[in-house]
Design a protein around this nucleic acid. Sequence first.
DNA 1: ATGCCTAATGGAATTAGA
Length: 269
Amino acid sequence: MKIASFNINGIKARINALPEWLDEAQPDVALLQEIKSVDEAFPREIFEDRGYIVETHGQKSFNGVAILSKLPLEDVRRGLPGDDSDEQARWIEATVVGETEALRICGLYLPNGNPVELDDAGKPVEGGKYAYKLAWMDRLQARAEELMSDEMPFLMAGDYNIIAQPEDAARPEIWEGDAACRPESLAAYRTLVNLGLTDATLARDPRPGQYTFWDYQAGAWNKNNGIRIDHFLLSPACADMLVDTGIDKDIRAREKPSDHVPIWVELKV
DNA sequence: ATGCCTAATGGAATTAGA
């Protein structure tokens, strides 16, 4: 089973590039982030015509996540638990039913968190974007702990907006102090991984320089000034199924690309 | 120079992204 994750940066803007990549890569499941669309406006037919089930969790203008699946989905849940007042559409999960086994798949768009606002004591300012990021990560931790205690293998994939190590940035010095790699962000990410999750990309290939994002500005792609912020985290049982991983970076050079590229895992399910 | 591009909204200039 091939499962991909792709921050498309707007479904309307990617209306050609996304189907083109799908036809080539042929993932069984694609987790999409930043669809930037309400559910009613999402162009489902384009994907249904290709044999995908379409489940969206959208909102107007920003954020929004979706699952495309050629395999049956059960128990679709929208929204990260833990804060009923949170309006932002950044989390969707479902059970994908394989031939022999079922797998819980979670698609996420973790808040960016910039600008980092701290008070005089160095605490994130309440109501600020950085505080929201850290609070969201606390809720992510809680959901991951719940999934860990269930017996079903699971994975959580998407745009984490976390640069987990200096090797994941072409120029780490640029990102010093950024919400993607501040100590609080990294501590929260480590706590999550330390539940026993496996970073699939690193597990298969620990070499530095495997980027998933290149800014539109200042010729970042041409200079290969990238960062790795899109991740697949696998539960122990899911990690046992890992066969292969990849980053489809070539599509970043095409017409009207997203600033992210797809990443994927092949699982023996 | 926290904004060198891009996207969404709404029909200009602002907000957001990372």
